[in-house]
């Protein structure tokens, strides 16, 4: 795909992301799929900061950042402006989970309701990483963050992850999908579809954060893959509000995923927190049931 369009450097090297940054990887893949005829609207966050320290920019497409909470509204204006001028560029929003799940909700709701033609890409690393790992509406149950720290009286974040895809599907978004940096071909296919489907489309990309989650930078893809293999992250597509495609897996126990990251370390040390782990396993089990995740293996021959 990259070779075909010769656009592999639209999100260029030289930016200041951490080694092993999941969202930098996502940005590169998104831009490979999006191509040159794209205007990117970036919400405030890690990506905006590590990619555009004035006077340098990593973006080789037109790019704009206004504020934290208003990317969807800025994109609305751009789309309206392009329509009026008879221009054909595609509008792609790049926003983190804090900008999407929390502070941007009013602008997002309005923009999706109005039906602007854009692709909203949420790179979800499950906390406010730019400000130092605070919990967001996307932070998973029991993750320790700086505002939901594990301690003597706490196992970390007490709230479940908000279901943004369902919220945006309920707005009538024609195409809603989740993707992961662990599956680049699938991710790029979904980005292309989101961009080419008329109307407001949403793709939520799981982007492990080595700094915020606590793992070595060479484990980003492996951990993203484990999230899917344990059923804690589900890759799916929704067309007109109906789930049409799900990445099925032979599920592993959630501990395989949890034990790779410091944000869940308190569940294993100083002692194994079986009740909490069972609660997280139940989340994965519910995902499996809801999305039909499990691949049924044929019975072993005697």
């Amino acid at each position: 795909m990259a070779e075909k369009k010769n656009t592999c450097d639209l999100f260029d090297c030289g930016h200041r992301a951490c080694g092993g940054c999941g969202e930098a990887l996502a940005a590169r893949l998104v831009m490979q799929a999006a191509g040159t005829e794209t205007i990117v609207v970036n919400a405030t966050g890690c990506m905006e900061v590590f990619s555009t320290p004035y006077p340098e920019t990593a973006w080789k497409v037109p790019w704009i950042h206004s504020l934290f909470e208003n990317a969807a509204a800025v994109a609305s204006g751009i789309e309206a402006s392009l329509k009026k001028q008879g221009r054909k560029e595609k509008v792609v929003i790049m926003a983190g989970d804090g900008a999407t799940f929390d502070i941007g909700m009013i602008c997002i709701s309005g923009a999706f309701e109005r039906g602007h033609d854009f692709a909203y890409i949420c790179y979800d690393n499950e906390a406010y990483m730019n400000t130092g790992i605070q919990r967001s509406g996307a932070t998973p149950y029991d993750a320790s963050t700086t505002t939901s720290p594990a301690g003597k009286c706490s196992f970390g974040n007490k709230l479940p992850k908000k279901d943004m895809p369902a919220i945006l599907a309920a707005h009538g978004a024609p195409y809603v999908a989740t993707a992961s940096v662990a599956y680049p071909a699938d991710l790029m296919q979904k980005i292309e579809r989101a961009i080419n489907t008329p109307g407001p489309c949403y793709v939520q990309v799981h982007v492990p954060c080595c700094t915020g989650w606590g793992f070595e930078g060479d484990q980003t893809v492996a951990i993203a893959k484990l999230a899917i293999e344990t059923g804690l992250w589900v890759n799916f597509e929704m067309v007109d509000g109906k789930v049409t495609k799900v990445k099925k897996v032979v599920r592993k126990p959630v501990t395989e995923y949890l034990k790779t990251q410091k944000r869940f370390r308190h569940l294993f040390k100083p002692k194994l927190q079986e009740t909490e782990i069972a609660a997280i396993q139940a989340i994965a089990d519910r995902n499996a049931e809801k999305y039909g995740l499990d691949i049924k293996l044929p019975p072993k021959k005697e």
């Binding site: 509204a73 609305s76 204006g77 751009i78 309206a80």
Partner: peptide, 25 residues
């Protein structure tokens, strides 16, 4: 293009996008 937006926050934000894309707003 007449946008009936969700709030004043979006009202001026949409103008920012439209103006940056080269339209009088």
């Amino acid at each position: 293009e007449y946008l009936t937006v969700d709030s004043e926050l979006s009202a001026l934000s949409a103008c920012v996008g439209a103006s940056a894309a080269g339209s009088r707003t």
